[in-house]
Design a protein around this nucleic acid. Sequence first.
DNA 1: TACCAGGTGGAGT
DNA 2: ACTCCACATGGT
Length: 292
Amino acid sequence: MAWSEWQTLPLRSPADAAVLAEILDGGQAFRWHRDAAGVWTGIWGDCAVRLRLAAGAGLQWSAPAARAAAAGPALAEYLRAGDDTSAEADALPWRSDPHLARCLAAFPGLRLLRQPLGETLLGFLCSATKRIAQIKQMVALLAERQGAPLDAAPSAFHRLPTWVELAGASEADLRACRLGFRARHIRATAQFLAGHPGWLEETAAAPYPAARDRLALLPGVGAKVADCVLLFGAGRPEAFPVDTWILRAMARHYGLSGWKPAQVAHFGRAHFGPRAGLAQQYLFAWERRHRE
DNA sequence: TACCAGGTGGAGT
DNA sequence: ACTCCACATGGT
């Protein structure tokens, strides 16, 4: 397949190679892969894109030639290229929080993505008690076996299946994607969403507490997955997902040993403020880098 | 081998 | 309301 020429995409708040890896492959999205030359290939919605950091030229992208015209604006939206994410980080309470201050310093340019809502939900429905590498494997199998090819050509990239498509898959089809017990949840959620067009989008547009509560009505979606969907797939930075890494971070650095996830989530939103979810991503990156 | 992984839902207090 | 634990699968 033919790729377009490399084009520069200026990020208002740039990131180096390590931070770019954290953005693309740090647990927000599950469809980015880096080759030996350091080129990233990623798929979201009906877009496939390659990214690289070129010395002196910053972030560059290329897309399948037939789709390159649409890919540029879609990529800018996905990466929130024009948003002043450094100002967003600077507005966090790092001046009175030494641990947050060193997290910000350790990952300059870290940002929240703006991913498609439905596939963010699918990714995080796969995430329960799985490592990121294994979530990526499940998502890859779902795309390969259940998702339509992006182009008519064989061996092309596949998008993820829509919820309507997933509703038509059998649980055996889903279990063949190595989903384990998550297959039942994904199938039940698919059947609900297929029967309620627009429900997901309405939910994401609701005020934060209502949106979170409504998402948690879906089978397999609890507080943590709901927060991830809102944070990474709906542009809702007040969401504060609490997983095992955040529990550990808050115990180690904030004295919250023994606190329950719901208590930590409440503390996080109160302490870090209206962009608590951005702080959460910094804490998450720090904790994973400093795992024992 | 035993334990853990970007949890959730159901059963039993 | 809170605690405990099964749930599939793969890696260390």
